[in-house]
Design a protein around this nucleic acid. Structure first.
Lengths: 221, 221
DNA sequence: AGGCTTATGCCACTCAGTGGCAGATTCTCG
DNA sequence: CGAGAATCTGCCACTGAGTGGCATAAGCCT
């Protein structure tokens, strides 16, 4: 439909046509899904309806995504994929693991496409808050990512002490917890849903961790 | 079938017959499910098969459980229900929130039925490790429980400071993380799957939290 | 252009989960 | 004890997610 301005550049820096089509189909599916889910709710849209709107067969849908929940979670999943990628290459100076993870996630957020990613995350999270099965799916995905990240860390770094592996796992779990609380706050705020603000809030939430560890409670008056 | 020895005690301390039957049906469903899932895998058992084995109609199954995953998660869910119950009544001396939660969970573990609960948890967790959809379901349930617990805490206790609510939520998230790592280790060990050992390991894992916060990593040699 | 690889569409199928209704069981109160 | 109300249960039909198989079409390579 919207033909590129340059018909056939001599040295094409882009991917081969087939790959570009796949990317576009995937993105169409994501955008259509977030649109429809936002309008009628997750359960108010059938896969058949979604596929018809996106002009693909149901069979094709399942070659791109594992489940109905999956397509709505794509923005977050892209982020964690980038996180793993950053973790794969970042240096291991003697910093604290948690700080290292925090910075890797910051870097990953920075790598997200500037056009519309934040909006898609926002739509996705708002949907998840209303849809138990989406929430469950997202949580499980984070857990799997945590395990992958732990594998990368074990392979690339030296974890001192007999409990080094446990410490790394706990640090990763902590990062996930911090990120989720950060997302909660970021999604809830009325305006200013930018990646930069997300990063800012991530560090702010992380700064509260020591207080959370020592926080006490008195009886209700 | 197995009639009670005392036909009709004058002052019956037990629940009415109808309630007892319901309890028994529920427990039969759980035991049958864990048996069959353990033998053929979660996906190797259909609901129709499970219902036939438990001698109930599928319609009845869904009057007791929300989903196929739900029945296999019952042991853990019973624990968290008890946790909420303990939280509802425990005193709020000036202790740290995290310690308070840890003790409440310990108390909840102590309230679990001595006969077979540990075995059921073990079977349930081993299944969950092999079944993504069960894992997701369990994670989502923990998240919902965390929110319920936060509501109880906010209602019963005073949370000082503008970030008191965040601190409490983080402390609860931490407890869940600690519990999951504890379960990982407890399930993995070859023997000694007792509630007491679970409690012991919970405190041991919690003791590693400060180290996890400050842990560092060097480059791989 | 022609053959090779890969993505897509279509069809039929299994299984989880739901709604409705009829019949059975338990509770309650006269 | 017995009638009637309140539940609990079983059966049946139905929707919708997800899968496997196979034929076709589209992009790729030389």
């Amino acid at each position: 439909m919207t033909a590129e301005s340059s018909p056939t550049p001599p040295t094409s820096p882009t991917l081969p046509l087939r790959e570009r089509k796949k990317l576009r189909t995937r993105q169409t599916l994501i955008d259509t899904a977030l649109d429809l889910f936002g309008a009628h709710g997750f359960d108010g849209v059938t896969l058949d309806g979604l596929c018809e709107a996106a002009e693909v067969s149901k069979r094709t849908f399942f070659r791109y995504f594992d489940s109905k929940e999956d397509v709505a979670m794509a923005p977050t999943q892209d982020l964690w994929a980038a996180f793993l990628d950053v973790l794969e290459t970042c240096p291991a100076d003697g910093r604290r693991l948690l700080a290292l993870f925090e910075d890797a996630l910051t870097e990953a957020i920075g790598r997200m496409p500037a056009d519309g990613w934040a909006e898609r995350v926002l739509a996705s999270r708002r949907l998840a808050a209303l849809t138990p099965s989406m929430d469950a799916h997202g949580l499980a995905f984070c857990d799997r990512t945590t395990r992958s990240a732990l594998a990368v860390v074990e392979r690339r770094f030296t974890l001192p002490g007999p409990d080094g592996r446990l410490h790394a796992r706990l640090a990763l779990d902590l990062l996930v917890v911090l990120f989720h609380r950060t997302l909660d706050a970021w999604v809830t705020q009325p305006t200013g849903h930018t990646p930069d603000d997300l990063v800012h809030r991530l560090h702010a939430t992380a700064a509260e961790l020591p207080s959370a560890l020592t926080a006490t409670a008195g009886p209700q008056v």
